[in-house]
Design a protein around this nucleic acid. Structure first.
Lengths: 210, 210
DNA sequence: GTCTATACCAAGATAGAC
DNA sequence: GTCTATCTTGGTATAGAC
C-alpha cells in the first residue's frame, strides 16, 4: 500500500493524463462492462468506475453512451479483423480454418471483446447501433470471402461456429463447467479446441451492486 | 368502426376477460417487444401498449418485469421443443437435420420468439435470467443428443447453424436485402432454405417513439 | 379484473469550478 | 483534463378506486 488515502476505489485525486491515453483506458473498461451487461444494461457510471474516472467525464469524452458503444464496437471489429489478417499472412492457405478458429478463441482473452460484439449483433432494431452492427458483420463476412478466400459453405461453417462460441460465452456456460456433466459435454463439443482458455477466464465476476 | 370512442389506441374501456386469456395476450405481446428491444431495453409500458392494457396491470399480473421475461423465455423454449418433437414424431430418422432446419426457420413466423431466446442467451451474467437461459439452452442440447439421437458433431453443426440464423435475425440483416448485394449473398448462405420466409417477415416495424 | 395516479429511484447529460 | 453537484427524464412498482 502506498501512502495515499485508504479509500482506493479510484476516487482519490487522479493524476492527469494525456487524453489519448485516458481514452484508451476508458475504452478498455467500457468493452468489459458492455460485454457483461450489454449496451442498454451497462451504465456509464459502471464504465467510469471500472476506468477509475468520474461518470460525467466518460460522457464528456465520448459525447454520449451511444457514441461510446459505437467506438467499442469499432475497436472490437478492428481487433478481430487485424487478428485474422495476421493469421492470414503467417500461415498456409490450406490450414486456415483451423488457425482462424484458434485465433478466434484466443480473442476471448480480451475480456468483453467478443461479448460486446455479440451484444451489438442482437441490437439490429436500433436505428444507429443496428446499422453499425450490420456493417460490422458484413466486414467480417467480406474478409472471409474476399481476403481469406473462403468459399460460401466454408464461410457459413466458420461464421456459424463463431456464433455458437459467442453464445456459449454470452451464456457464461463455463461457469457451470465443474458442477454439471452436460455442460462439460456441450462445451467440449462447441469449442473445437482451446477449451482450457475459456475456462481459465474464471467465473464471471459480478460486482455486488450496480 | 364501432360506436365507441374514436381513440382506438387501446385505452378506451376494455372488456373484461378471463385472466388466463389476458395473460396469453400479454405474453404474446411481450415476446414481440422483448424480441425487438431485449430484456433491459424493453419497457413494461411498451408491452402494455402492445397488449392494449395498462402498464401497472402488466406488472401486477406477472409480479415484475423479470418474471414476465422468464415466462416469455419459458414459452419460447416450449414452443421450440414441441415443434422439434412434432418433427421427430413425423419423420424418418435419416432426414431429420433437414427437417429440423426447416422447422426452426418456420419458428421465425412467431414474431419475437427466436429473438427473445437470443436476447436471453446473451444475458448469462444476470444471476437469475442467466441461470434460466443456460438451463434452457441445455434442454435443447439434451433434446438433440438424447431424444433426436444426434451425435456430437451433428449436434454442434445444428446448434451452430441455429445461432447463425439467430444472429442474422437479431441483426435484422434482411432489412437490407434489397439494397445490398453482399447482404443477399450472406443471407443466401446463412439460411439453408426458406430464405423467402425471413424476407416476408417484412422490415422491422419500429414504433416512432418508445 | 383493470384502471388512474403517483412514489421512487436510477441513469444520462449539463454546468461550472478547479 | 477532470471533478462535484445537479437537472431531467423515464421507467418499475405500489396504492387504491371502480
Amino acid at each position: 500500500m502506498s501512502s495515499v488515502s485508504a479509500d482506493d476505489d479510484g476516487h482519490e485525486p487522479i493524476t492527469r493524463m494525456k487524453s489519448r491515453d485516458r481514452r484508451e483506458l476508458i475504452l478498455e473498461a467500457a468493452t468489459g462492462v458492455f460485454g457483461d451487461y450489454g449496451y442498454v444494461g451497462a451504465t456509464t457510471d459502471q464504465v467510469a468506475r471500472a476506468a477509475g474516472v468520474s461518470q460525467p467525464y466518460v460522457v464528456r469524452m465520448f459525447g454520449s453512451k451511444e457514441k461510446l458503444f459505437l467506438e467499442v464496437l469499432r475497436r472490437a471489429l478492428d481487433a478481430l479483423l487485424s487478428t485474422f489478417r495476421t493469421v492470414l499472412a503467417e500461415n498456409s492457405r490450406t490450414e486456415l480454418p483451423r488457425y482462424f478458429g484458434r485465433a478466434y478463441v484466443d480473442l476471448l482473452n480480451d475480456r468483453g471483446l467478443l461479448l460486446s460484439l455479440m451484444h451489438a449483433f442482437v441490437l439490429g432494431s436500433d436505428p444507429v447501433i443496428g446499422r453499425a452492427a450490420r456493417e460490422g458483420f458484413l466486414e467480417v463476412y467480406e474478409f472471409m470471402r474476399n481476403e481469406a478466400g473462403f468459399g460460401p459453405e466454408q464461410t457459413r461453417e466458420f461464421l456459424a461456429g463463431g456464433m455458437l462460441i459467442n453464445t456459449m460465452v454470452g451464456l457464461r456456460m463455463s461457469d457451470e463447467f465443474d458442477t454439471n456433466e452436460t455442460v462439460r459435454e456441450l462445451l467440449t463439443i462447441a469449442l473445437p479446441e482451446k477449451l482450457d482458455l475459456l475456462l481459465h477466464l474464471g467465473k464471471t465476476q459480478r460486482p455486488t451492486s450496480k
